[in-house]
Design a protein around this nucleic acid. Structure first.
Length: 110
DNA sequence: TTAGTGACAGGCA
DNA sequence: CTGCCTGCCACTA
């Protein structure tokens, strides 16, 4: 792993600890990482290096529980990956956060 | 340096 | 439910 800033490395850890079959939001990750205002940074992060570290990027959606990825840029991929884990996604990319949301209770950072 | 942009969020009509 | 607007912050032209 490279030497990333605090917020970045912390975000990567959190995303990496999302269990299969569960999803969270960009804002939630940012908040857990210590910056409630950093949702966009988390998004930019995933956009740039999710593939590189084989992170579960597909388990991160927006606050409305919707896939925030353009249809022409990975929407379908994310949908497939989630359904493959047992997460039901509607054709327009909506997910039931009440059912698949994470974390459930209090989250303890590793 | 300023202006525009985006895998976002929250509040409100 | 759908829009519209404001706040954010790193990046780019």
């Amino acid at each position: 792993m490279d030497n990333y800033p605090y917020f970045t490395s912390r975000s990567l850890e959190i995303i990496g600890s999302i269990p299969p079959g569960r999803v969270t939001s960009y804002g939630k990750v940012a908040a857990l990482a210590g910056n409630p205002r950093g949702a966009r940074q988390v998004a930019r992060l995933l956009h740039g290096m999710s593939q590189k570290y084989s992170l579960p990027w597909h388990r991160v959606v927006n606050r409305e529980g919707r896939i925030s990825l353009p249809v022409d840029s990975g929407f379908l991929r994310q949908k497939e990956l989630l359904e493959h884990e047992g997460v039901s996604v509607t054709p327009d990319g909506r997910i039931d956060m009440k059912k698949y949301g994470w974390p459930v209770g209090a989250f303890k950072l590793p």
